[in-house]
């Protein structure tokens, strides 16, 4: 059987804040967690590699500061990676490293192949603009110049994420946290991207609202066969959504596998602590 080609392949992705020094650039560098005590450089992501397949949900868990958001922002080009390679099957057939493309090309990739839902809705939405405009923004960025078309698309997406039509022209700043995340999801989906990136979408929401948003994500994945990367430090969320799971610690992947395996039979000491402390 031929191995299916991943929709996204990440190889050796590293992101550091700071220039490093002789102390921390040494082979067996002595960091305090992800941080060099001498020059204060933060190694937020260290040599991260993984594949994402068509239609699957890949979970990423890890404690606060382990580099999950940095990884997501790097994939969405909000942050420039320090080094590493990334390949998208929907971009140049996976032949070009997306991280070394021009900023115009990166913008094109971001607007047509990727959708992002941020941990903090302030980062993903223009709080003073109508929800319709927020969703249209990505379509405009992708080159659409037809108001009615974009309006129809935005309305149907808002319906899909269960925002009442009569509130579609309201600004997200008037919305509850759960609604804001729904608008973000609608915006992320506006150009029908094959890949969605979701960073802690349910953190800070009431439990019942969380369940609704998770159901929505699950249904989108089922109906549209979109690939997703879902970041959470809540194992219950990962258990419910993710087919495969990656565990991060101090910027590194320390364990990965099928979600059930990782959660039932964790190999790494840290994952064991993480899983058993929650039982």
């Amino acid at each position: 059987m031929m191995q299916e080609q991943p929709v996204l392949s990440i190889r050796q992705l590293s992101k550091q804040y700071g220039d490093g020094c002789t102390h921390c650039q040494h082979e067996d560098m002595k960091l305090e967690k992800n941080f060099c005590p001498v020059c204060k450089t933060v190694y937020a992501c260290r040599s991260v590699s993984f594949d994402l397949y068509r239609g699957e949900i890949l979970g990423i868990v890890g404690e606060s500061g382990s580099g999950k958001s940095t990884l997501m922002k790097s994939l969405y080009f909000d942050e420039t990676v320090t080094s590493g390679e990334g390949y998208l099957v929907d971009y140049e057939n996976g032949h070009n490293n997306i991280f070394t493309e021009s900023s115009q090309m990166k913008r094109h990739i971001r607007n047509t192949i990727l959708g992002m839902v941020y941990q903090n809705p302030m980062l993903g939405l223009k709080m003073d603009f109508s929800s319709m405009s927020n969703i249209a923004e990505k379509q405009i960025a992708a080159g659409n110049r037809h108001v009615r078309q974009m309006e129809e698309r935005s309305l149907s997406l808002l319906q899909h994420v269960k925002i009442p039509v009569h509130r579609s022209k309201e600004a997200p700043k008037n919305f509850s946290g759960g609604m804001q995340q729904r608008v973000q999801i609608a915006k992320a989906m506006s150009n029908n991207p094959p890949i969605l990136l979701l960073d802690e979408v349910t953190t800070g929401l009431d439990l019942s609202v969380q369940a609704d948003v998770l159901d929505l994500i699950k249904s989108i994945q089922r109906e549209l066969n979109i690939s997703m990367i879902v970041v959470s430090h809540d194992l219950a969320v990962i258990r419910m959504l993710a087919d495969r799971t990656i565990v991060m610690l101090n910027g590194e992947i320390i364990e990965h596998g099928l979600t059930d395996q990782v959660l039932e039979d964790p190999q790494h000491e840290y994952t064991q602590q993480l899983v058993y402390s929650l039982l």
């Binding site: 115009q104 913008r107 923004e137 405009i140 108001v147």
Partner: peptide, 22 residues
């Protein structure tokens, strides 16, 4: 400045779109 350098003007259209919505 970067937006101008990259001819990235979706922001200008977004302003007009928002006016049409309102």
């Amino acid at each position: 400045k970067r937006y101008h350098a990259e001819k990235e003007y979706s922001g200008a259209y977004l302003m007009l779109f928002e006016q049409i919505m309102r």
